[in-house]
Design a protein around this nucleic acid. Sequence first.
DNA 1: ATCAAGTGCGTATTATTTACGCTAAGCTGC
DNA 2: GCAGCTTAGCGTAAATAATACGCACTTGAT
Lengths: 241, 241
Amino acid sequence: MTRKTSASIQQQYIRDVSVDCVMFGFHDYHLKVLLLQWPGESGWSLPRGPVLRNEPITDAAIRMLHTTTGLDDVFVQQFQTFSRPAESVQQETAAPSSRDSNPHRAPSLITVGFYALVDFDRVKPKVEGNFQWCEITEMPDLLFDHHEVVESALLALRKDLRYLPIAKLLPGKFTLRDMQKLYETILNRTFDRRNFHKLLMSYDFLSKLPEKKTGSQNKSPHLYTIDFEKYESALQDGISY
Amino acid sequence: MTRKTSASIQQQYIRDVSVDCVMFGFHDYHLKVLLLQWPGESGWSLPRGPVLRNEPITDAAIRMLHTTTGLDDVFVQQFQTFSRPAESVQQETAAPSSRDSNPHRAPSLITVGFYALVDFDRVKPKVEGNFQWCEITEMPDLLFDHHEVVESALLALRKDLRYLPIAKLLPGKFTLRDMQKLYETILNRTFDRRNFHKLLMSYDFLSKLPEKKTGSQNKSPHLYTIDFEKYESALQDGISY
DNA sequence: ATCAAGTGCGTATTATTTACGCTAAGCTGC
DNA sequence: GCAGCTTAGCGTAAATAATACGCACTTGAT
């Protein structure tokens, strides 16, 4: 297909380009971000990975999240591309193979920022190093420019909220209260319970389940699921709040 | 600052990465996009250029627009990054110098999309090939995936309109009607003249000039300028319409 | 003078957002 | 069983924003 170059070279990673991903999860009424600590690295950073020459960048982000968390149907959204000064990047002029064999390590000149919305309970990180879910309000210092990346991701998330399948942050079954808390947490404001209830019911993407959530101290709330087809079409027009 | 690599190599372009720019202009009550035709190329495409290793991508976009249009204070906004299948890209495995000497030619694997808002009258394209201002509604076929890039840019422009210095599309002096037509064109809707007038006057970024615009058949409208400081701060909160 | 559009005020209507009262139901601990 | 709490679902009222449009007056070109 291409002249002069062998297939093996075609499948190399694109040099100097990577994807970074801010993976949002919702747990315990708190918005959290998945952080990794690679073996041999001194601090925390975001999941990141290289991009294959023959791969759409969105696929690269999804592939990277699959290998780090095991999820395979992740909703990702590209939000901004960052460039870093060459001086801040550990320049490797050694053979490409040494880069390709461990392509997660060095930060790259250009990184495409994604955020992901995932069901907290379904994420089982399988990395060699450590990981933690960190509350968005209490982020530690991060490596590289990842602090800025997280900030931008959160701003983009808030901005896109009307058109995003934010419910991907919830488990398959959830209460209305869960959903209200989710919106409240992200937007850092409160909603009137009754108005919020009316609002959600004015769309038709929620289905009440026969089951209820038990174990709390009071009346057991109903559980709901989302009809994602109807949900997506409601999101086309944007949902107001 | 960096080990093992000479300064000259540091200043090379980043391989496989470029910036594409959708330059919006407003003329004759129409929204237009600047298209180029490079010598030796068979069709029209967007202004594009490479990124230096030591350069923030936004600077790369501004630098590229400077060399192609002579403008040096362009407002640019990054909106999306695109990747292209490797097969669609003319792969150059020759010496890097041959790429560097003509870095505008080959499309790259990764391209960061920007749009620019410019004063139509101040753009003096100084390219080797041809150029045209093309109405957004009558775009010809473009090279590469540039049609998709333009589409995305327009969507992003509409979405960001409340927070964008849209007045950068107007000349230094303009009438209220000009501004109304600008909004109407971009949003593809109409506004009531009196309500629009009230709306603009509710902010304080417009200054009425002593001069008037003459030459039309009727009463000469007042000319206005923008106080860009006040404008920017109004944009922080978003301007409604 | 006349015409057509600009200028600048006012007000009425409508839609959306926000606030909140009220009743009933249902679970748990006492 | 009963108290205390929260969910569930109804209602309405007030506040705010968006929209429609009337009217008097100005002004430049023909």
